[in-house]
Amino acid sequence: MLHSLILMVAQTTVLLAISPFLVGVIRKVKARLQLRRGASVLQPYADLAKLFQKQPVISTATSWIFTATPYIVFTSLLTAGLLVPTFTSQTPMNFAGNIIALVYLLALGTFFLILAGLDAGSAFGGMGSSREAIVASLTEPAMILSIFAIALTNGSTNVSTIVHKTALLEGIVTDPSPHLMALAALFIVALAETGRVPVDNPATHLELTMIHEAMVLEYSGRYLALLEWSAGLKLAVFLSLIANVFAPWGIATTMTPAAMAIGLLVYVAKTAALAVLIGVIECMFAKLRLFRVTDLLGVAFILALLGLLFFYILRS
């Protein structure tokens, strides 16, 4: 019991600590590829600290939804983060929910963000909310199918169990194609859900292109800090998911301190590598028009479906 509690606290701390770092890595990679020096990878921490210190301004048009939303989003993402293994494959909260719970916890945050976008009564927020609604509705089927395709090989839909079994090589050994397709699908989903190019651009403040930034436009001070941190958390959750489900090597499968230490190092390395990849992608591709995003997410859905198909065909 105490053991689980310590692990939970550790995992929460790791997630909270690593998320600004991952954002920093992406920004740094982008800057370097654009031949800029770029800010230090630790800059996001300083940004957060600064935002927390600022006095928030709240619109008089808003209701309690507006001030409650940052806390709800932050909470739902942290809870989702506890369902995904990070440095150890046996997360204590594994029993609390499987992938469906994970997806719907993320949806809880999305729901309140959409509401908050509408609350201030400015057209920007409404536009962001409206776009978020369509992007979210297209990503989730692909996400559920892709993780399900992987879940089948391990006989479990609990993320931690999947990772633990894969790390110990206990799953059904099949050809790599279903995994490959599911990975591609999940990666596209991750880009869309975390608001990255080519779906959304976190660095823009141009009304034609904003999605996530438009929804949080009216926020300031500690509320904005919480939302920025949450955006980082979402990134961390998705990167942990991808890194640990598809490449669980090095993750701590036992409870010894040595294994945990190695697991932590490997975890940071893996997620940082994925963050670098995202940075490269952001430099290589242009942002898609909103109505072309459907093409991309359509690809993700079909890939996940094919992964599933291949799994069944290969096993029969």
Partner: peptide, 22 residues
């Protein structure tokens, strides 16, 4: 045979990319 399957799957993936590409 797994490697061949993997390569064939990659062939199929590029097919989908062509369908999705304008």
């Amino acid at each position: 045979s797994q490697l061949i399957d993997l390569c064939s799957a990659l062939l199929l993936l590029t097919c989908f990319a062509i369908v999705a590409q304008r």
